[in-house]
């Protein structure tokens, strides 16, 4: 559906997206993960034609976003990070305007607007000015806008930011139901959200794709070094006595916690002693309050983006030193100049 190949985007000398390639298949929900400034929004903006790439290309449904922008954009419904809403219009007027701009036939606009308003449950506010709506409702108007014209691909950039827990659940349900007959790309910081909603995850870090797989596969990624996490209600000594009997355990870390003992076992590659160990603890009469052979996506995420943060910290400390070396009076004007650089472009 979407094919991104060797995409690079530079802002001046700053490399935001570094030669990334991936493919989005039809009819699935994709999660876009990454730390702040990793290049998520930039990539989404390029896919939707809001930004142009420095090199590489993107095709949507076979149409090159750069050469045939109108055809490519017709296939996409896009909700940017900040919903682009006109405060002086009501949601109904706004949706009618976008529907017309998207080229929907005038006879079909009325029912289409009704449909998306029903789907995002914004009917009760459809007559109020957008500027007076709460953030949650604005977000929903934004999503309704993306759904107009029933595009095959729906791209949502952090759609649940600023919503209350109930709204978040509603929006997640909506995204899930959209995934049944659309291709959905969703970016988020909230890992549990991605884990719950998405089938496939693309993790971007520092402008590079560090993982591109199904949630299942990503969570099983360290099968080479299987890990078991156990919390047992016993003393550390009792736990060690049981674990020591298995030679598959190559390494263990033990900490005492308020529920007893927490163990993290590293096993030999390709071994599985999950059941054996479970029954061994049961036979010894030790209840287990936690037992997991899977790694949560949080851990994977931290691991994959970890190296990047380490590097960042290093460079940060270097610049700090450099800054403290420099004369403060010299340093300050540089800062204000940078701050005003946006206005300077005018």
């Amino acid at each position: 559906m979407i094919k991104v190949s060797n995409l690079t985007k530079k802002y001046g000398s700053n490399l935001a997206v570094d030669n990334i390639s991936f493919e989005i298949e039809k009819g699935r929900i994709y999660g876009f993960l990454g730390p702040n400034g990793a290049g998520k929004s930039t990539t989404m903006n390029i896919i939707t034609g809001c930004l142009s790439q420095t090199s590489g290309n993107v095709t949507v449904g076979g149409f090159d976003v750069f050469d045939q922008p109108v055809k490519a954009k017709k296939l996409i419904g896009y909700l940017p990070e900040l919903p682009p809403l006109y405060g002086d219009m009501t949601p109904k007027e706004y949706l009618r305007f976008v529907a017309e701009a998207k080229g929907i036939k005038s006879s079909a606009i009325g029912p289409e607007v009704e449909r998306v308003m029903f789907r995002t449950s914004i009917k009760q506010v459809s007559g109020r000015l957008i500027r007076n709506l709460s953030k949650g409702y604005r977000q929903r108007v934004g999503i309704a806008m993306a759904l107009l014209g029933d595009p095959e691909i729906i791209i949502l950039d952090e759609p649940t930011v600023g919503l209350d827990p109930r709204q978040i659940i509603e929006i997640r349900e909506l995204i899930k139901s959209l995934g049944e007959d659309h291709t959905v790309i969703l970016s988020s910081h909230i890992l549990s959200e991605i884990q719950e909603v998405c089938e496939h995850v693309i993790i971007i870090s520092r402008g590079k794709v560090v993982a591109d797989d199904t949630i299942e596969n990503i969570c099983n990624m360290n099968k080479e070094h299987p890990v078991l996490n156990i919390v047992a209600s016993c003393t550390p000594d009792a736990a060690v006595a049981i674990v020591d009997e298995y030679e598959e355990v190559t390494h263990y870390a033990i900490t005492e916690c308020d529920k007893g003992t927490s163990l993290e076992l590293t096993l030999m590659p390709g071994t599985n002693i999950t059941e054996k160990l479970y029954f061994a603890f049961a036979a010894a009469g030790i209840p287990l309050s936690y037992f997991s052979d899977r790694v949560s996506i949080e851990e994977i995420y931290l691991k994959l983006t970890e190296s990047v943060y380490d590097e960042e910290e290093e460079t940060a400390s270097v610049t700090e030193e450099a800054a403290s070396d420099a004369n403060e009076e010299e340093y300050k004007p540089m800062f204000t100049e940078e701050d005003n650089s946006d206005e300077g472009d005018l």
């Binding site: 903006n45 939707t48 034609g49 809001c50 930004l51 922008p69 109108v70 055809k71 954009k73 017709k74 996409i76 896009y78 940017p80 900040l82 682009p84 809403l85 006109y86 976008v98 701009a101 998207k102 080229g103 806008m145």
Partner: peptide, 10 residues
């Protein structure tokens, strides 16, 4: 930031 809508419209 509504210009983003204009850029993404077909």
């Amino acid at each position: 930031k509504t210009d983003q809508l204009l850029y993404s419209l077909p």
